[in-house]
Design a protein around this nucleic acid. Structure first.
Lengths: 196, 196
DNA sequence: GTCTATACCCAGATAGAC
DNA sequence: GTCTATCTGGGTATAGAC
């Protein structure tokens, strides 16, 4: 993969990010070296620093980009008016979005320990924003009497944890289609929330 | 914490393990050095190798010990005859056992990437054994007609993921007691499994 | 923008004195 | 069983030539 020489600013920048994402997901942030990333990209380690200030910032920006895209995509989506439909929409959206980018999801959950304090706080803030939408739906449903759960905060966490678990086992080549998985989980979530 | 000199085989061995467990949970396996472990224990790095062959084996043995204790504890527990009671027993046991040793749980899930192929296979085998008990209960319940789930394998994973999520937020000092958390989750699980 | 070279530091693991 | 000392390799990041 050795590069002779030359200027490739449009290509190298994005390639560093996708390569780092993939390597961090496979081996973990701390276990991946800058030399390793550079090697896969096809440049020398020093060249990476034309694009990123340091390794920590690279990790943070990958996580931040992922969460911002999540919020952005969610925000521009048309939402059903009915509360039950809204929960179904959230569940199906969550599964689809997260299964489509397993590496980013994995990093965003597993590498929180490796963020500096400030960066950690920023990422947690974005995640909280996302989860608050789900909690709002659940609270509305409780007020309307269609859900029966004693604590919407806990129910929110339970739903998110259950859905995130899919990423640990789902494979495109598996025996169930994405649509089937969505439906199975949607039913479990609906029932768990005490919907009749 | 410098140790002058002398022999402490009964103390040092266990201390290495508890210290490593704690440091790995906090910073991640790859980010913790042998010198760091030795420093906290109060010995020089070289002395660690009187107790462990290498860092990889240390990680593996910590995970293995955790899972063996899980299986052991579970095996020697009296099980209710009724299927619904059995599921409730599993849920409450799982929550209690895992909340009691958050560091070991965290490592056993987060550091799988850092195991060699053989060690990974051994750990996954132990985990599968544990989860198979839950799946057996669910399958029995479906046959008896008290649960209504289309796929017991997926339901098993969903329940485990939901319960494991508790470890990411539960604190002894929080607003809910362990008993309350258990009951809330037990109800969500029961309903998710389609129990009337 | 990328290269080569390097500063500086720390990693895992071992050898041999005590 | 622990220490000190050390081997060997690799880490992040920077400097300066092209």
């Amino acid at each position: 993969m050795a590069r002779t020489q030359g200027s490739h600013s449009d290509i190298t920048g994005p390639r560093i990010r996708t390569t780092a994402l993939s390597l961090f997901a496979q081996h973990g942030f701390a276990a991946v070296s800058m030399r390793q990333i550079a090697g896969e990209v096809g440049v020398q380690a020093g060249a990476l620093y034309n694009y990123i200030p340091d390794k920590q910032t690279l990790l943070f920006s990958l996580m931040e980009e992922h969460l911002r895209e999540l919020l952005q995509t969610r925000a521009t989506r048309e939402k059903p008016a009915d509360t039950l439909d809204r929960l179904e929409d959230f569940v199906r959206f969550h599964i689809r979005f997260h299964l489509a980018r397993p590496e980013a999801v994995f990093i965003a959950y597993m590498e929180l320990r490796n963020l500096t304090e400030e960066n950690f706080a920023a990422i947690e803030d974005l995640r909280r924003t996302y989860e608050m939408e789900l909690e709002a739906v659940l609270r509305t449903g409780v007020e309307e009497g269609i859900f029966s759960i004693p604590d919407t905060k806990i129910a929110t966490r339970a739903v998110i944890a259950m859905l995130n678990g899919i990423n640990t086992w789902y494979r495109d080549s598996g025996r169930l289609s994405l649509e089937e998985v969505e439906t199975i989980y949607w039913n479990m979530v609906r029932q768990a929330m005490g919907h009749a």
